[in-house]
Nucleic acid binder design. Structure first.
Lengths: 195, 195
DNA sequence: TGTACATCAGTGAACGCGCGTTCACTGATGTAC
DNA sequence: TGTACATCAGTGAACGCGCGTTCACTGATGTAC
């Protein structure tokens, strides 16, 4: 077999990474196969050696975030699952609702950048999105006292607050108001981990 | 001048209403001018007698929600601005995070249906979106005790929680989890209006 | 060790379809006389 | 009051462009002998 066995894999990875960044910036429909392949240093035609459609690429891109940063979240929380610390939840909130994350158009969480796109996409993409949320909720839940229905409710609400705060902040044209929303969500979320 | 003066206005209104519903269901890009005009009982060509572009229609559609339900919110809150009641905020939360609202694909709030679309649209559309959020925040803020920085933070966080909870619930393919998120956000938001 | 061969990742031209927009027209309706 | 006229909302065919996808090919690289 010509070409080393890793060669195709690494090309595929380059395509997915280019796609993840471009989708994050421009959304599903405004990104063309040409843009993705050019960013990956390749040409149009080769794309279908790796994916059966543009939608399949979208799924791979969302999923790649889950495997990357999402896996970090899990790892952070899973270091010692028997002794979960509230610090982990607080660090997560700190990072997620930070101004750095708000400005990081390339690296941001797809739940912020692509909610409508995912809602209208196919079930595989939506599953990746759901796994990402579950990772986040799981980390929050582990970081709170005990595993009561109460902490479950709190963890889910924290996720809604984090995602909602960032989605709003990203969409508002008045950056002062956007910042106000982000900071308010940040404070409220922090308080919720206290008591 | 032929045709009564209201005739064109009412045709325009029919187009906007059709567009609002279709955009809510399918997003900006998946709705065609043909679909909108057909739903309004007209044909393609006439569209440009009313709007200069598809984007202009999108702005009018988002804005029409603001003028419709958004105005109701304001009116509700503004009945007696000197004596704001926490009931108003609670009612708003009740309705916004209800399962009826989650299922109402046609009539739902554009902040839930179209966040990514608006984020990538032009400034006029984003302004409409912002006005909608401001109406919501204003209602929450009026419903809380006093006008302290504290109540402002709470009002903004409530908005983030409402929108975030619904965006997540709408996007999750597992409807049990979606419902869990909605209910959790509902409970937490209600609690926040208590103390 | 060197050479012919087979494989298949990557190329780039072409296809085909959809959709936003334009345009020449039609015909309904209000106004002037 | 009735009739000719002017306006302009609405029609539907056509245009043109972009983009997802296909396809015949090229050429780099591993393998067999």
């Amino acid at each position: 077999m010509p070409y080393s066995s890793e060669h195709k894999q690494s090309t595929r990875a380059k395509i997915v990474e280019s796609a993840r960044i471009l989708f994050n910036r421009h959304g599903f429909q405004d990104v063309t196969i040409d843009m993705v392949m050019e960013k990956a240093g390749l040409t149009r035609g080769g794309f279908y050696n790796h994916f059966k459609s543009k939608e399949a690429l979208f799924g791979a891109a969302v999923s790649s975030f889950l495997m990357g940063r999402g896996a970090e979240w899990r790892a952070d929380a899973g270091v010692d699952p028997t002794k979960p610390s509230p610090d982990m939840a607080r660090q997560m909130i700190q990072g997620y609702l930070s101004s750095e994350h708000l400005g990081d158009l390339d690296g941001q969480c797809p739940m912020i950048a692509l909610p409508s796109d995912v809602a209208r996409s196919n079930p595989e993409v939506q599953s990746s999105y759901q796994e990402l949320l579950e990772a986040m909720v799981w980390l929050f839940e582990s970081g709170l006292e005990g595993q009561t229905p109460r902490s479950r409710q709190k963890a889910l609400s924290l996720a809604a607050l984090c995602v909602g705060g960032m989605v709003l902040a990203r969409t508002l044209p008045d950056s002062t108001l956007a910042e106000e929303v982000r900071v308010a969500a940040h404070h409220t979320a922090s308080e919720m981990t206290m008591k």
